[in-house]
Simulated scan of single mutants.
Amino acid sequence: MSALGLDDRRRMVHRLLPLETGCGLEIAPNWAPVVTKSEGDVLYCDYLTYEQLLERERTNPGRIQHGLRVQRLDFIWEIGKTLQECAGTAAPFDYVVSCHVFEHVPNFLEYLYQVRAVVKDDGVIAMVLPDAKGSGEYFRRETNAAELINSYLLGQTVPSPGQVYDGLKNLFDFQNVPLEGRSLADVKRLFTDSDSYAAAVRASQEYVDVHCWAFSRDGFAEVARELREIGLFDFEIESLESNPATQTGHGSEFYVKLRPTAPPRPSLLRARTQPMSAPNPDPDAAPGLSDIEQVRAHADRAFREAVAVQDALKAEKEALEAAMARAVAHGEKAFREAVAAQDLLKAEKALAEDRLARLEASPLVKLGGRLGLLPR
């Protein structure tokens, strides 16, 4: 692992974890775990099965070159279930660690809250994140608190087309050279705008893996501070360190140690995926109906509500168009009236000037002028 620079990473992260006394969980160890089974009491999980990981990593050149093996998993974090449900009685853990995972998840806060739910109150969450300012995302705009809040409150479960486009458009071949004063046009991009848009189109129909978020070490600290102030970051950052700086002045990755400061939050995602178990019963659900019939009734009500909303929007659109037409007609009428008034003023001015010219040319006025009887 030393040839890949993984030993340094592992040493950095090990300093953050209670390896000798604690039981931990590593999320997505793949073929390069941060904590091996021989180094600590640790379980492994991923959202893919061991067989799916084997197939995905079958041709990975880094894995093959260094003879690394995909790790067997202790459990699967199943889609539609919380991490706590999937971990079962193995939780809570003394620590949870993940390496280059959080930047991929489309709902950062929900994911973090689910990890918190399987950590003891005095436990540790350690994560390794790529530093956008020390990697091939140098020119990408950094993630802000508003974006994390948006994905959380909307219950985002897949990378959005915009995230996919932004993540690919700004990705380039990082050569570890100074980049200050340069732009994306000065480096070798990995995807054209057209490539990025094509991937975004696919993302509207299927899951497209991408870096949903881009942080620098200092940027992450600032976002965490803002989220803490509004009550959305229930953690203390006990440690925030980077690996040695690249030629950009930033490390290529940074290491975060979080300590919980509040009890676990309920999963908003879980609440959305289980509408039938919501505390407020569906008013249209009739007693005695089977689960399937209640789901059908719920879907029928949702369809009727959607049609009603669509009709209301249609009526609002028609009313707006009518108002616009009246405004245009009124404007055209006002314009015509203004033009007519202007023409009338021009005609009256010409008439007055003609009368004045004739008056000045009359013999009587000329005589009065010579005698000094007319005002000058």
Results as ranks from 00 to 15, higher is better:
235 F>S: 00
255 Y>L: 11
242 S>C: 05
283 P>F: 09
214 A>N: 09
244 P>V: 06
219 G>D: 05
234 D>V: 01
267 S>F: 12
285 A>E: 13
286 A>L: 15
257 K>M: 14
258 L>W: 12
278 A>P: 03
262 A>D: 04
268 L>F: 15
277 S>W: 13
217 R>M: 05
267 S>Q: 10
244 P>W: 04
237 I>P: 01
217 R>C: 02
232 L>K: 02
228 R>L: 00
234 D>S: 10
214 A>K: 05
223 V>E: 00
253 E>L: 13
219 G>H: 02
265 R>V: 03
285 A>H: 06
252 S>T: 12
214 A>Q: 12
231 G>F: 00
257 K>Q: 15
235 F>K: 02
222 E>I: 00
249 G>C: 09
226 E>N: 00
278 A>E: 11
265 R>Q: 09
263 P>T: 12
251 G>D: 06
256 V>W: 12
266 P>H: 14
250 H>L: 02
257 K>P: 07
253 E>G: 10
214 A>C: 09
225 R>V: 03
259 R>I: 07
254 F>A: 10
226 E>H: 01
259 R>S: 14
257 K>T: 08
287 P>R: 08
215 F>Y: 11
246 T>K: 05
265 R>G: 05
266 P>D: 13
270 R>T: 09
275 P>F: 13
242 S>N: 03
252 S>C: 11
270 R>C: 15
286 A>E: 14
264 P>F: 06
244 P>H: 09
216 S>M: 04
274 Q>P: 04
220 F>R: 09
283 P>S: 09
219 G>A: 02
232 L>I: 02
229 E>P: 00
258 L>A: 09
278 A>S: 15
213 W>V: 03
278 A>W: 14
244 P>L: 07
267 S>G: 14
252 S>D: 13
287 P>L: 05
268 L>H: 14
279 P>I: 08
260 P>A: 11
286 A>H: 07
258 L>M: 10
220 F>G: 05
232 L>R: 01
277 S>Q: 10
263 P>N: 07
234 D>R: 04
266 P>S: 14
220 F>N: 06
255 Y>G: 08
259 R>C: 11
242 S>W: 02
261 T>N: 06
278 A>C: 12
223 V>C: 00
226 E>S: 03
234 D>A: 08
265 R>K: 12
274 Q>E: 13
230 I>F: 00
232 L>P: 06
272 R>V: 08
253 E>H: 13
230 I>C: 02
222 E>G: 00
269 L>G: 11
260 P>T: 10
263 P>E: 15
261 T>R: 14
